[in-house]
Nucleic acid binder design. Structure first.
Length: 453
RNA sequence: GUCCCCUUCGUCUAGUGGUUAGGACACCGGGUUUUCAUCUCGGCAACAGGGGUUCGAAUCCCCUAGGGGACGCCA
């Protein structure tokens, strides 16, 4: 049997880290078994579901390269089938109509909470043998038993069905609800393994029972522990649950993000970095941790720098422009500049920011001690005596700079500090040999001259 | 409140009855050095607590505590 997994977001928001990880693990699991990864939008909440979010989720998955192997399924398009099957459950006696009013239910709930009981429907309509009358909801008759399954991550799970109530499968308006739709669609899509966050654990118990009642084949289940925010709470917009596309525009590389995410709860020996192909080879759900982990921007930044350093600078240039940097590819020594800047950068944004020092001549603060008369004298000598006529490479420029310093009996910082300031207006910048070479003779002279004035 | 899941350095984790409890990020210090960074070397730092089982427990069992989740005519 070929493995089929699915990622099933509800399009009521953007894709964030937690969802991306669920998608990644589902994708990896399918790929590692030579199977298929599918996408299903759980868009039965017509109030909150938005096409804009479907687009955004699709874009995010595309950026992460976690594309589904078949056309995305839109749950809302299967409503008739869901309804038909729900009714079949009623015919079989596995579901019943309930005429409890919302007020009645609220009251029940309030009393239960007051009595420190678990708030849930008490099954009071179970034996009423009601028919649909235009306002009744259809409830699933939860079997009086316990439900067990072998979770691929958590192991044996057994829950007494009394902990779950007779949940609604068809609303008063006749539309089917989530737990029912999800169970049916997983069946119809021939999903072999359902991978999702462990906040779905009780839903799994419900869906397992639905599938049994429908006499379908039970899929395997794997519940991923949650990703918590840095403060240890559930990931929310307030503390770092960014839209995945925000990571792109902030200058993160999708490979780095993916690598970071996969290590949240999964490890292979003492290796930190993996290519996607390695992940496909090594990944297994049984190696996934069962404890929640916290999101760490610091670690993500480290991964991003690692990926930035390894990435070809011409590719980086393309990505830079993709996120709106408008760096001209014909700019003098553009690739060399990126080569140098990427080494210390945490993101494309940082490269872009540092790039400014090459684009713009610095404005020199005359009162800065780096522009003192004494310093100017050293730079003036340098300006007059260093050979700016040669067109050369990085190594030779650096060497000639060293030679100049030795020949003139200077300490490197004596020349270096003011020269760096003259060239960039900054105190932190790439090495001077690199600066001189990348800026080029003409531009270097121009900047030094400006400093000297 | 009830039920479920979870608990190794600050963080991500390795570890499946016998290890000086390992690695990575971060942090701190040394070195290279031309500033920041990179690179390199080193350091700090953990088995939540308590009971068992066992010759021996981070590893198995129980309890407690803590964290997270679920409890909708949302998904």
């Amino acid at each position: 049997m070929t493995e089929r997994t699915r990622f099933a977001p509800s399009p009521t928001g953007h894709l964030h880290i937690g969802g991306a990880r669920t998608a990644l693990f589902s994708w990896l699991f399918a790929k590692s078994k030579g199977g298929q990864f599918l996408l299903r939008f759980e868009d039965t909440d017509t109030e909150r579901s938005k096409d804009e979010f479907k687009d955004s989720i699709l874009k995010s998955l595309e950026w992460l390269n976690l594309n589904p192997d078949e056309e995305p399924v839109h749950q809302s398009r299967n409503l008739e089938r869901h309804k038909f099957l729900a009714l079949s459950l009623f015919e079989k006696g596995a579901a019943y109509y309930c005429d409890c009013s919302i007020e009645e239910l609220e009251e029940l709930r309030a009393t239960q909470i007051k009595n420190k009981q678990k708030p849930m429907y008490d099954g009071r309509s179970r034996e009423k043998n009601l028919e649909y009358e235009g306002k009744n909801v259809l409830r699933y008759k939860m079997p009086k038993a316990s439900t067990s399954f072998e979770d691929l991550i958590l192991g044996d799970i057994t829950v007494d069905n009394r902990e779950l109530d007779d949940f609604i499968i068809l609303r008063a308006d006749g539309t089917p609800t989530y737990n029912f739709c999800a169970a049916v669609d997983d069946l119809d899509m021939k999903i072999s393994t359902v991978i999702r966050g462990d906040d779905h654990l009780t839903n799994t118990i419900k869906q397992l029972n639905i599938i049994k009642s429908l006499e379908g084949n039970l899929p395997n289940y794997a519940h991923l522990p949650m990703v918590l925010s840095e403060s240890g709470k559930r990931l929310s917009k307030r503390d770092g649950a960014l839209d995945i596309m925000d990571y792109k525009s902030e200058g993160y590389l999708s490979g780095a993000l993916l690598n970071y995410i996969v290590r949240l709860g999964w490890a292979k020996d003492e290796v930190e970095k993996f290519t996607m192909n390695e992940l496909i080879d090594f990944f297994d759900l049984s190696d996934v941790n069962s404890s929640p982990s916290k999101f760490s921007l610091q670690l993500l930044d480290w991964y991003n720098n690692e990926y930035l350093k390894e990435m070809d600078s011409s590719t980086l240039l393309k990505l830079l422009n993709e996120i709106g940097s408008n760096i001209n590819e014909n700019f003098k020594n553009i690739l060399g500049i990126i080569d140098v800047l990427k080494v210390g950068a945490k993101s494309l944004k940082e490269i872009e920011e540092s790039f400014d020092m090459f684009l713009k001549s610095p404005s020199i603060d005359k009162s800065d001690s780096l522009a003192s008369e004494e310093n100017k004298k050293i730079i003036k000598d340098f300006f007059d005596n260093f050979d700016f006529s040669k067109d050369e490479n990085l190594e030779s420029t650096s060497q000639r700079l060293k030679d100049y310093i030795n020949y003139n009996d200077l300490k490197f910082p004596q020349l270096g500090k003011p020269l760096r300031y003259a060239l960039t207006g900054r105190t932190n910048a790439p090495g001077l040999g690199e600066l001189l070479y990348l800026l080029g003779n003409e531009e270097s002279r121009k900047r030094i001259k400006n400093y000297l004035e």
